[in-house]
Amino acid sequence: MISPTKLKQHRQKNLSQTAIANELGVTRATLSAWETGKTIPNKKHLNKLAQALQVKIDELQDEHPHLTLYKQLNKSNKKKVDDLTHDLLLEQKVIPLFSVQVLDNIALSAGHGNGIWDEYETKEVFTNKEYLYDVATWIEGQSMDPIYQDGEVALIREGGFDYDGAVYAIAWNNQVYIKTVYLENDGYRLVSINNTYPDKFAPAEDNSRIVGKIVGHFMPII
């Protein structure tokens, strides 16, 4: 994971926040958030950062404290650590975890809708199942309870409308919703699973469009 401290140190050796932000095409506030650890840059921005700062990506990453200590051991003690680690893994049932990069400031609204940002960062979370998807983002709200819950990650396969009754991410009036969608003559009918929420109608004249189908969802393990 990127180290805010290392990022700031390398940046201060080279250019100002404003200069780096302009080179990357982001705001100064975005760069400041990276340097304070409030958000992390996505893969594209991380590559551009490394190029702008003329460093390798590894030089911007945090090193785990245990690895730092391990490097200080002599060859004999390193082998003892390796052997102990191997034995401990054999004693426990190891559950493989899969990394998912979630768009961190774009959420699918399972309520009244949520705004879309052109600039976004990602947050790494983990699940114990491997999925095939194009985009991952958060679910906010209770309108799709009990199946799609507030705080879960939604996985989207990008594409257009497929069939009635599927759950889609749909963009409408500069907001994104997660809803069960039905195609009408003049737009889309958006239906909630939680029947305490009324149906919505997204007229075609509003340029509403299907972002993609929801192909998975999960509550992050860590």
Rank of each mutant, 00 (worst) to 15 (best):
K179Y: 04
K179D: 02
D199C: 11
N47H: 14
E63V: 11
K43W: 13
Y188D: 01
T18Q: 14
T18P: 08
W138T: 00
A52C: 15
G165K: 11
V26F: 08
G141H: 01
W117D: 15
K43G: 13
L7N: 01
L69I: 14
G151I: 06
S192E: 01
Y120D: 04
P96T: 06
W138V: 02
K75G: 10
A204G: 09
P41Q: 03
S109L: 02
Y70D: 09
N185E: 15
G212Q: 07
Y148T: 01
G141A: 04
N22T: 06
A166M: 10
E91G: 07
L46Q: 04
N194Y: 08
G212C: 13
N173K: 09
L183Y: 10
V125N: 02
E158W: 14
F161T: 00
N185C: 15
R11A: 04
V215T: 14
G37E: 02
I116R: 01
Q54W: 11
E152D: 14
A21Q: 02
K38H: 13
D199V: 08
D164M: 12
I221T: 14
Q101K: 12
Q175L: 05
H66D: 15
L60E: 00
I95D: 05
K78Q: 15
A166L: 13
L73Q: 15
R157A: 11
A52K: 06
L108K: 00
G160R: 08
K200G: 02
R189G: 01
Q101N: 15
G113D: 01
I40K: 04
Q54I: 15
E124H: 06
D186G: 11
W117S: 15
K200H: 14
A50V: 06
N207F: 11
R157P: 05
T180Y: 09
I214M: 08
T30C: 06
D150E: 10
D87T: 13
L108I: 01
L49D: 03
P220A: 10
I57M: 14
A202C: 10
D58V: 13
T30F: 03
A52G: 12
S16P: 06
T85H: 15
V167N: 04
A136M: 03
K80I: 11
R189D: 03
A154S: 06
E63D: 14
W117R: 13
Q142V: 08
S76P: 08
D199R: 13
V211Y: 03
L84V: 13
N195T: 09
T122H: 10
Q9N: 07
L183R: 15
G159T: 09
G141T: 03
S143P: 03
I156K: 00
A136S: 10
Q142Y: 12
D118A: 11
L108W: 00
Y148S: 00
S143C: 05
L108G: 01
A21C: 08
K71E: 11
K38Y: 14
K6I: 03
N105G: 05
V100T: 03
V55H: 04
